[in-house]
Each structure stands twice: as C-alpha cells, then as structure tokens.
C-alpha cells in the first residue's frame, strides 16, 4: 500500500513537472542611475517589483538560501542587505569604501569585496558585520571570484591589468597573472580547472589555468562591421557542464557564445545597448543580460541560443543575479 502511494506521488510529481517546463526564479537587476533593484519573475518574464536602495547600486549577490540580497551601494560606501520576501533593507554592512563587485563564500559567509578606490580586497564576516582581513592588491580592484573548492580567491585590478591569486585562508597574495588591459570580471569553471577573465579595453578574454597561473588561451572577438574599440568584454558566464561560455561585449551590443572546449566563438547575439553583466538561472535555461544604455534586460533562451524577450527595467541596469530557488 505504502509502495503504491509513493509511486502515485512520483507519477503525480512527474506530471506536474511536465506541465511546468521551467521553475520560476527571481532575477534581481541593479539600476545604477535609478538607485533601485528591479525584480523579474522568470515565468512571467516581467518586472514584478522595484525596490528602492542606496545610491549607485552596482554589484549584486544573493545568499545561498535565497533569503537575502547583497547590494553594493557604491556612493553610500556600504553593502545593503535586503530581505527578498519583504523587500526591506535589513542592514548595511561595513564594506570599506566604494564597493563595486564582490563574491560570496558558497556557505553564505564571508563576503569578499573589491574596494575600487582603495586598492584592497576586504573580507567581511556577514553575520557579525566585522572585517576579517584587508588584502592589498593592484590599482582599482574590480572582479572577484572564489574557486569552487574555496581555497583560492581571485581579484582583478583594472589599472594594473592583473588577476591576483590570493590564499582564501591566510589571505596572502600567492601570485599575479598579467592579462590584457582593464580586466573586469573573473569566473571559475564549475570544476575549478579554468579561470576566465574578461579585459574590457584589451577586447579579449583570457582563460587561465588556476593551478599553474598560466594563460591557456586568449579569446578574441570579431564582429563584422564593428571596430576593435567597440568590442569591450565585461560579463562572463559558463554553463556548469563546461561546454558553453557567454561573454557580454559592451558597446558591441552583443553577447558572444563561445564553445568552452575549443574556445571558438560560435555566435553573436544582438541584445541591447551597452551590455554589461550576465546571469544564468539555476536550471541554465535562461540567460539575462543588463543593457546599460537601453535601460532594459534581454532574455536569452540558452538551449536555442536565441533572444526571447526584452524587458524594460530602471535607469542604467548593471548588476544581475538569479535566486537559487
């Protein structure tokens, strides 16, 4: 009898899943000039809420349980913590000056923050709101990433054009790798075997072996009809199977789709004006892009590699993150 009930439940669940092809996630977009966060429902593909936050919101992250949102309010020199269910600002964290981008430990604590004006990385205990360490790095630190095993922290410095490798336990600098000009975003592959770093002015993406600290491949982009100066890679996302990478190309208004095994560019998708950052939903069916000059977000169907929809948001959208559930 019990077996029958369980089977019925399983069948019922299977039917339900077939009826709803994608789970609904919330995608959070920071509007740098709108001083707000737009909340997009991935089933409706529309903005369902707008949250007023601090001045010049840029980087955005969500806690592993999806309950809290962390927002770099750069001009307020703090990181605001927002309750995702009530949309209220719960507290402001002691981030150090001008926080721009950051990374969160997969356990939910600590937070690793790039302080652009201060040439340092701040490690912050989120629960106690206490600074654990300050690590001096290159000039204008920007991109932050933590290796999947939690052992290595990577920061990119815009002016010094380097990816800095930092021991995530002792917070000592291990090594630095020179990349092309103005590195903006660093992302590890899910298995930790590669680190992808975008260089905005250099117009390239460096794929680095994070153990040997050597560049394996430098990816270049060529969009017919556009000059090299118009191609400015910033946002990077990799699918968890390690097969596909998406690179946002700034004023080229396109997202490049790269085969992450051969490093060949497969396709360019026209999205919106000045595309900055990217976020994949946890099921990796949808990719969201922030288009800073057209004040909207493009939604890309990942299996079909097609732009599904454009959603108007606030002024100058920049950061984007999807809820984990």
């Amino acid at each position: 009898m019990r077996g029958v009930t369980i089977s019925a439940l399983l069948i019922g669940c299977a039917v339900c899943c077939a009826a709803c092809p994608a789970a609904a996630y919330q995608v959070y977009v920071t509007n740098e000039k709108g001083n707000s966060v737009s909340v997009i429902d991935t089933e409706k593909l529309a903005v369902t809420k707008t949250i007023k936050v601090g001045r010049r919101p840029r980087g955005v992250l969500v806690s592993p349980d999806g309950k809290e949102l962390y927002i770099c309010a750069s001009d307020d020199n703090g990181i605001q913590v927002v309750d995702t269910s009530s949309q209220k600002i719960l507290r402001t964290l002691n981030s150090g000056p001008d926080p721009e981008q950051f990374a969160l430990n997969p356990s939910g604590n600590p937070l690793y923050i790039a302080n652009e004006d201060d040439s340092q990385v701040t490690v912050l205990d989120v629960e106690k709101n206490q600074i654990v360490a300050r690590v001096p790095v290159g000039v204008e630190p920007e991109g932050m990433a933590l290796s999947p095993d939690g052992n290595v922290l990577v920061n990119t410095s815009e002016v010094t054009s380097m990816a800095h490798f930092i021991d995530a336990h002792t917070f000592k600098l291990i090594d630095s790798v020179l990349v092309d000009r103005r590195p903006r975003v660093a992302v590890f592959s899910k298995d930790g075997s590669q680190l992808w770093v975008s260089s905005e002015i250099g117009g390239t993406v460096a794929v680095i072996d994070p153990k040997a600290h050597k560049i394996i491949k430098k990816i270049k982009f060529d969009v017919p009809g556009l000059t090299r100066q118009e191609i400015q890679p910033v946002g990077v996302r990799l699918t968890s199977d390690g097969k596909t990478a998406f690179i946002a190309l700034g004023p080229a208004n396109r997202v490049a789709v790269v085969d992450a095994q051969t490093f060949e560019v497969k396709k360019y998708l026209l999205v919106g004006l000045r595309v900055w950052h990217l976020a994949l939903t946890p099921d990796e069916k949808l990719l969201f892009t922030t288009n800073g000059n057209s004040n909207d977000v493009s939604v890309i169907d990942v299996p079909a590699l097609k732009v599904l929809k454009t959603i108007p948001v606030g002024l100058a959208p920049l950061g984007v993150v999807s809820s984990p559930n």
Partner: peptide, 8 residues
C-alpha cells in the same frame, strides 16, 4: 552609429 552595432 554603425549599422553593425544595432543590426544583425
């Protein structure tokens, strides 16, 4: 504004 920047 170049055609390529806005047109595919």
């Amino acid at each position: 504004i170049s055609a390529a920047a806005v047109w595919s």
